[in-house]
Amino acid sequence: MASKFQSRLVGTIILVAIGVIFLPDLFDGKKQHYQEQFASIPLQPEIGEEGEFEVIPEPEFAEVDLPPEPVTVVIDEPEASNTVSERGTVKVEPAPVTQPKVGNRDSGWVVQLGVFRNFDNANQLVSKLRDAGYQAHVFPKQPQQGDLARVVVGPDVSKSKLSTQLKELEKLTGLKGRLLRFNPLNP
């Protein structure tokens, strides 16, 4: 025989189920149905007033005369500007290539004070050097994962000026720097 608790539980479940099923319909009221109005596409074009179909004009194309022979491009170095000759050839002046002056390639010098794994330490050292009036940099400017930070002072053209600053930099930072050539393409 079922206990009173089981009977009450079954009764409660039945009442809740009836409420979930039928009560929303009672409280919704009268439903309104909406039907979309749409325009149908005509199957045949409309006939004009005179009983004829409207004629769409054909598109007009421009006629282009092509030269009888192929156009060639001639590059002449002595001329200063781009010109077109009567035959249709184009003469283009190439951009002048300037060679670096002798001695400018390796003329810069820097003092490398250290190589750091932690970029925060390198940036703190650079700010300390800049506060003291030195031109200091961290390379690379945009580090990748696993890159090392190099702290340098310079560049300067005068090797002797930087070599005299070595002792001042050692007193300021406690790091023994070394003098290196500066390559602007790969700092």
Score class of each variant (00 low, 15 high):
2 A>D: 07
2 A>M: 10
4 K>H: 06
7 S>C: 03
7 S>N: 03
8 R>D: 10
12 T>Y: 06
13 I>R: 08
14 I>N: 04
14 I>W: 07
16 V>R: 01
17 A>Q: 02
17 A>H: 00
20 V>M: 05
21 I>N: 05
23 L>M: 07
24 P>C: 09
25 D>F: 15
25 D>H: 12
26 L>Y: 12
26 L>F: 10
27 F>H: 02
28 D>C: 00
30 K>M: 09
32 Q>N: 00
37 Q>G: 15
38 F>G: 11
39 A>P: 04
41 I>H: 03
42 P>S: 08
43 L>Q: 13
45 P>G: 11
46 E>K: 10
46 E>R: 08
51 G>Y: 07
52 E>T: 13
53 F>S: 11
56 I>F: 13
57 P>I: 13
61 F>P: 02
61 F>G: 08
66 L>I: 11
70 P>E: 08
70 P>R: 05
70 P>C: 00
71 V>E: 03
72 T>H: 07
74 V>G: 00
75 I>F: 11
76 D>S: 08
79 E>A: 10
79 E>P: 01
84 V>K: 12
86 E>M: 01
87 R>K: 04
90 V>G: 00
91 K>Q: 07
91 K>G: 09
93 E>G: 03
96 P>T: 12
96 P>F: 11
97 V>N: 03
98 T>D: 11
100 P>T: 09
100 P>C: 14
101 K>N: 13
103 G>Y: 14
103 G>M: 12
104 N>S: 10
105 R>T: 12
106 D>V: 03
108 G>W: 08
109 W>K: 03
110 V>Y: 01
111 V>N: 02
112 Q>F: 00
113 L>I: 05
113 L>M: 05
114 G>V: 01
115 V>G: 09
117 R>P: 07
117 R>A: 09
118 N>G: 02
118 N>C: 07
118 N>M: 06
119 F>S: 05
120 D>M: 04
123 N>Q: 09
123 N>L: 08
123 N>F: 10
125 L>N: 07
128 K>A: 04
130 R>Y: 05
130 R>P: 05
131 D>G: 06
132 A>P: 04
133 G>W: 05
133 G>R: 15
133 G>Y: 06
135 Q>R: 14
137 H>N: 15
141 K>A: 14
142 Q>F: 10
145 Q>C: 00
145 Q>T: 14
146 G>R: 11
147 D>R: 11
147 D>E: 11
147 D>M: 13
147 D>N: 12
148 L>P: 08
149 A>L: 04
150 R>F: 08
151 V>Y: 04
152 V>D: 02
155 P>V: 04
155 P>K: 07
156 D>W: 01
157 V>M: 09
158 S>V: 00
161 K>C: 01
165 Q>L: 11
165 Q>K: 15
168 E>Y: 04
169 L>E: 06
172 L>R: 03
172 L>C: 01
177 G>Y: 01
179 L>P: 02
179 L>G: 01
180 L>Y: 00
185 L>R: 11
187 P>W: 01
